[in-house]
Amino acid sequence: MKSSSLALKGGILLGAIFLFLKLILPLFTAPLPMSLIWLYLFLTTIGIIVYGTLSGESTEALLGPIFRFLSGEGIEGTTKMARLAVLVLFPLLVGWQTYSGFVPSSQPPSENRTIHPAPPGEFVGLSNPVPNTPDNVMMGKGLYFAYCMPCHGPKFNGNGPASDGFNPQPANFSDPTTIAMLQESYLFWRIKKGGVGLSVEGHPWKSAMPRWEVELSDDQIWKIIMAEYAGAGQKPRTWE
C-alpha cells in the first residue's frame, strides 16, 4: 500500500534520525547540542515535505494518511485509539511547552562566544622574525613546557593538568580547526595580550589566558608559536 506508507515512512525517518543523533552518536563522540539536532531534524522535515509533495499522487500519499488519521474516517481499532491519544496529547503538549516557556528557567543563557575575533590592526600581517631552526623550535618547546603546558597540555591538545578549572577550556592545538586556521601573527596577539586582550565578542572576562607580555619577550613568544605548530603537527596559515 503505497498511499499509506509515505507519511509513516517520513515519521519513522524523523524518529530514527532523532534517536541516532541523540542516543547513538554520543556513544562514539561528544553529545550534540540540541540546537544542532533541531537543525538536522528541520532539514529532514523539509526533505520529507519536498519529496512528498512532488506529484499529486505523492502528496496524497504524504498528506492523505495524515488527514484521514485526523478526521477519523474509516479507521478503527488501535489506530482509532492512537488518534484519540494524539488529539488529547497535542493540546497538553502545547500547554506544557507554554508552561515551560513561562516558568523561570534553571538553564543559564546560551553563549555565542566568537572564538576567533579580529585582532587589532597592529597585529595583522606580522611575520615571525625568528628563523625556524631546530634549535629555536627546541627553545620554544622548553618555554612551552614551562609556561603553557600546565593548561594546553604536554600533547598540545588543551588537556593540561591545570585545564579543568577554566571555562572556556584551553585551546586544543592539535585540532585542525584551531591554530592551523590562523596566522602566526594571530597567535602572537593572543599570547602577548592574553584573554583580557580579547574584544567584547570574545568574552575576555571568561578567558584565563595570561597576558604574557608581562613576563615573556617578543622573541620568546615567537619561539613558543613555532614550537606549538611543530608540537601539534600543524602549519600556520599563510597568504603568500
Binding site: 485526523l70 477519523g72 493540546p91 497538553l92 502545547v94 500547554g95 507554554t98 508552561y99 516558568v103
Partner: peptide, 23 residues
C-alpha cells in the same frame, strides 16, 4: 504560569477542532 499553560491547552484544543473540521 499555570494559567498560561491552561490557556494554551484550550487554544490548542480549539485550533485542533477547527483543523479537524476543515479536514
Amino acid at each position: 504560569v499555570y494559567l498560561y499553560g491552561l490557556v494554551a491547552v484550550v487554544l490548542a484544543a480549539g485550533v485542533e477542532f477547527v483543523i479537524i473540521r476543515k479536514v
